[in-house]
Nucleic acid binder design. Structure first.
Lengths: 232, 232
DNA sequence: TGGAATCTTGATGAAATCTTGATACCCCCG
DNA sequence: CGGGGGTATCAAGATTTCATCAAGATTCCA
C-alpha cells in the first residue's frame, strides 16, 4: 500500500462532505471528492483511489447504480454510507458489489475501523508483483529485501554502505555528484564531507569488486562523483 | 470457489446455533459448528472453511482473541456477530482482523448479503498454498497449530515469543525493522522499546539456536532489525 | 490464595559501525 | 621531472547498537 492511501468520497451534502474530508485527512489519508455520481465515476479511473466511500442518496443517480458501474472495471473496495437502513437497501447495495454498508448516523471510530479493513482487502488483492531487483554482471541488489549478492554469495552491508549503494542503484547508469550522494546518505547539511564518500565507496568496493583498484561496477568520475554501471 | 462453500460457525447459544445451521444449509452452504473458541481454532486448520462466522461472547475465550489467533496463519474472511454494539467493541474486533461485524439482532437477508461479500473476497484472494508450515534447516514452525520444533524436538514458546517468531516467519528472508516488529507484536504505540526486542530475540535464540552467540536462523542486521533466514 | 510462568525493566560488557586523521597513490600539466 | 589536485587506503578511537543476565512486577491458573 502507498504510504498515503487515497480515498474518493462521493457525497453531496456539504456538512458531511466537510466532516469526512477533515476526519480522513487528519488520519493522513489523501482525500478526493465528488458531489455527484457521474463526477465520481469520471474521477475514479484516473485517480485510482484505494477505497471509495459512497453515499447512496445522490442527486443525479442512484448509489447502487454507481456501484454497479464501478464494478464493471474495478475491484476497488466500496464503503456505502446511507440514511436508508432497510434490509433490502443493504442487500441491493452489497449484491451490486459494495463491500460494506454503514447506516447514518455512524460513529467515526467505526468508519475508520471499516476503512482499515477495506485497505487490508485492497492490498491483499494487489499482491506485490515481485520485488524490483537490480542486476548487472554478478551483482544483484534487492532493495526491498535489503539483500545484496555478488556471484550468488550474500554480502553483508552496514546501514551507511547500504544507503549509499541504494542511491547508486536507483540512479544506475547516471553520474551522481559528491554533493548529491552526501545529501542522500548523510542528510542535507553534510555537503562538504567528501571524505566520507571516499571511505564508504572504498568499503563498498572492497566488498563488491573482485579487484577494488580496478572496479567494474562502481566507477569514479574524477572531479564529479561516482556512477554505478547499468550494463556490462 | 467450491460449488458448496463451507462455513464454520463458532457460536455457543443453541437456539442461534440451530437457526444459523438451518438458514445456511438451506442456502446450499456446507455448515460446520463449534461451540467454543478453542474448538473453533482446532477445526479451522483441517476443515479450511471458506468463511467463519464468529460470536464474540464465547464461554471459554474472547472472540477478539479467537480472531487474532486465526489471523496468525489464515486470511479466511471472519464475520463477527455480537450482542455488544459499542464502537470500541467493533473497532477492537475489526482491527484484530475481522472483516465484518453484525450486531444482534440482525436480519437474515443482511447476513446472507454480507456472507456473499465475504465469499467474493475469499475467491478473489490467492489460492490456498497448502498448510501454512514454515521449514528451514532443522527449524519447523506450524503457525496454525502453534507448534515449533527444532530437529524434531518440540519447543515451548511463551505468547510473546511465538508472536515475534510468527511475524518473522510470515516475512521469512526479509529484514524486518525494529519498528515493524514492535508494532506487530506489542502494538502500534510501542515504537521505541527496542529493548524488548533484544530480550525476546535473545530468548528465542536460546531456545532455537544451538549456539545463540552464532545464530544460523535468527540473524541480526545491525542498525536495522532482524531477519529469519528463508533458506540455508 | 499461592505458586509458577511470563513480562518488564535496569545494568553491564561486547560487538559493530561510524568518524576522523594520516599517508600513499595516480594522472595531468607545465 | 616535479608539483598539485583529486583520489584511494589504512587504522585507531569514539560512538552507537547489541547480547546477556537477573531482579522485581505482573499475570495466569489451579
Amino acid at each position: 500500500m502507498n504510504p498515503n492511501p487515497t480515498i474518493l468520497i462521493i457525497e453531496d451534502e456539504p456538512p458531511l462532505q466537510k466532516f469526512l474530508r477533515l476526519t480522513l485527512s487528519t488520519q493522513g489519508y489523501n482525500v478526493l471528492e465528488a458531489a455527484r455520481g457521474d463526477d465520481g465515476l469520471k474521477q475514479a479511473p484516473t485517480a485510482k483511489p484505494d477505497v471509495i466511500i459512497l453515499d447512496l442518496g445522490l442527486p443525479d443517480m442512484d448509489g447502487v447504480e454507481v456501484t454497479r458501474r464501478l464494478r464493471e472495471w474495478s475491484a476497488v473496495p466500496i464503503i456505502i454510507i446511507s440514511a436508508r437502513g432497510k434490509e433490502q437497501d443493504k442487500v441491493a447495495a452489497l449484491d451490486a458489489g459494495a463491500d460494506d454498508y454503514l447506516t447514518k448516523p455512524f460513529s467515526v471510530g467505526e468508519l475508520l475501523a471499516r476503512l482499515r479493513v477495506a485497505f487490508r482487502h485492497a492490498s491483499a488483492a494487489n499482491p506485490q508483483t515481485g520485488d524490483p531487483i537490480f542486476q548487472v554482471g554478478g551483482l544483484r541488489v534487492d532493495l526491498s529485501r535489503r539483500e545484496v549478492t555478488i556471484d550468488g554469495k550474500a554480502i553483508h552491508l552496514t546501514p551507511n554502505e547500504f544507503r549509499l549503494l541504494s542511491v547508486l542503484v536507483k540512479n544506475a547508469g547516471k553520474v551522481l555528484t559528491h554533493r548529491q550522494l552526501l545529501r542522500e546518505v548523510w542528510g542535507p547539511q553534510s555537503n562538504e564531507e567528501t571524505h566520507y564518500l571516499r571511505v564508504y565507496m572504498n568499503q563498498l568496493r572492497q566488498k563488491l569488486e573482485s579487484d577494488s583498484a580496478r572496479p567494474i561496477y562502481l566507477l569514479t568520475e574524477s572531479g564529479v562523483g561516482y556512477r554505478l554501471v547499468s550494463e556490462i
